[in-house]
Design a protein around this nucleic acid. Sequence first.
DNA 1: AATTAATCTACTAAATCGATAGATTTAATA
DNA 2: TATTAAATCTATCGATTTAGTAGATTAATT
Lengths: 152, 152
Amino acid sequence: MLSKKAKYAIKALEYLAQKDSKIPVLISEIAKEQTIPKKFLEVILLELRKDGILRSKIGKNGGYFLQLSSKEIQLGRIIRLMDGPIALVPCVSSKYYAPCAECKDEATCGLHHVMAKVREATGNILDNVTLDEIVKREQLLLKTARKNSKKT
Amino acid sequence: MLSKKAKYAIKALEYLAQKDSKIPVLISEIAKEQTIPKKFLEVILLELRKDGILRSKIGKNGGYFLQLSSKEIQLGRIIRLMDGPIALVPCVSSKYYAPCAECKDEATCGLHHVMAKVREATGNILDNVTLDEIVKREQLLLKTARKNSKKT
DNA sequence: AATTAATCTACTAAATCGATAGATTTAATA
DNA sequence: TATTAAATCTATCGATTTAGTAGATTAATT
């Protein structure tokens, strides 16, 4: 399961992506609009900035904005940054590889192959979905939802 | 990431599946052979029994053995039982469905679709791999590994 | 009756999760 | 240059989960 941190990060980034500009947005604005505890959000935004996804401006008229285009930000990157490996076991993780503590021999482990398949399948999805797509999809869904409610 | 509990459960079940008989195996034997803390293993085996995967016999000549055939035990079932949902968000979980706390409206959530895809992809793998296949694969790998070491 | 083995009850230490408080630094502007 | 606004840094904290342990109890053999 995703942590709250990861979910908050995604929501905050969605909000910034929708703004689609280089004008800094206040932490407090993001916190209020997306109902995220402000102090917790501070930690999250800082991490996103340190990873190069966001940029910040200190002082008056300061705030946060996207460093990368929302088309360059993959969901997998956000999740890995916040929650660590996506893989179910460390020995098949691409970014956080480590041998499994419980495993005698990786080469003869009957599980390895399956775990690698799972990691590949999820990675293929999460690393190919961008923030831009998520935002566009949400906008589309909202639009059609409004249309349907008008009809009834 | 899988918990130690889930990994221990898989190892214990692999061990019992390899025995392939209705003769009860001692907790202490499994613990020793698979290097799992005995008291922790007790908890795990009890859960597996309550789910119907294992059976137990109390008293002299007692122990644990498979209730189901190893061909009927899917990896997904073991993992769900030990660690809960496989899905990344509760709103796409098949067995543990719940609305996402942070989400205003599931129908217009831009993330939902992706998360459902991930859950489907992982589920398709984990729910179709059986204990039997894992054990057989391990045996095959061990066999070929021995062959190769003889050659060199 | 004695022995054996699972089961039940009840803890516990350590790590992680989800936050919060308050002081500090940096930049804009009046 | 003083004021103000904003992010940043330090530091701590309660609750929950994870990983495990101790010891008494119950059930089945022999």
